[in-house]
Amino acid sequence: MFSRKKRVVVIIPAYNEARVIGEVVKGIIKALHKADYPGDVVVVNDGSKDNTSSEARQAGAIVIDHILNSGAGGATATGLSYANQKDYDIAATMDADGQHAPEDVVKGIDEIQKQGADLLIGSRLINADGMSKTKQLGNKGLSMITYLLFGINTTDSQSGLRIFSRKTLESLRWKTAGFEFCSEMIWRAKQLGLSIGEYPIQAIYTDYSRSKGQNNWNAVNILKSLLKRRLTEMFE
């Protein structure tokens, strides 16, 4: 049932993002307010060495400071665990580098209710304008690998913009802590029988987000980790 009365939380895992985190937090707070969604913005500061924590707090976010750097997967898990504990109806995750438009987050929160999905992935590749050919190749390759390993067909398995229903918050867990958690999360959702949907989003690439983004060499690391995970689970 579509309603803008649902309590939502936007989770932003962040590591050394002091330069942009304030603007990202202010942007999403403004977008939620404009859409009339009651909710909070939670920044999970993953052991940053800069002022990410204080910048996010000043901008109006709830800040959870990780004592140790535990990777994007670990920080996202902490944020979703917080969302579950605090009984939010819907949670969204977005990147801290400013590559996601706040309007796309709100659109996703609307969309998950309309589609009745449990996990909704914001796909940058349905309309890939603005994304470099190299990044497109890397992302498409990882989506193909996700399909081959786990049998899940998504256009953008590595997207950081995801929307979670209450049911998903209560049940979804994963094991990996690095960026490979993006694919593993979808796999676990499939194992739990959760419905997975997609909607188009626009990626905003600035010099800063390009400098912070993952390069294609990291895709090799992700592939290795996913293969290891897939193989080891055959013996469990």
Binding site: V44, I62, V63, I64, D65, H66, I67, L68, S70, G74, A77, T78, S81, Y82, Q85, A177
Partner: peptide
């Protein structure tokens, strides 16, 4: 990992989120 998560959340609450 779970312990780290819980400690981080509890500490943030205690310090005033």
């Amino acid at each position: 990992r779970d312990l780290h998560q819980e400690i981080s959340i509890k500490l943030s609450e205690n310090n005033g989120p």
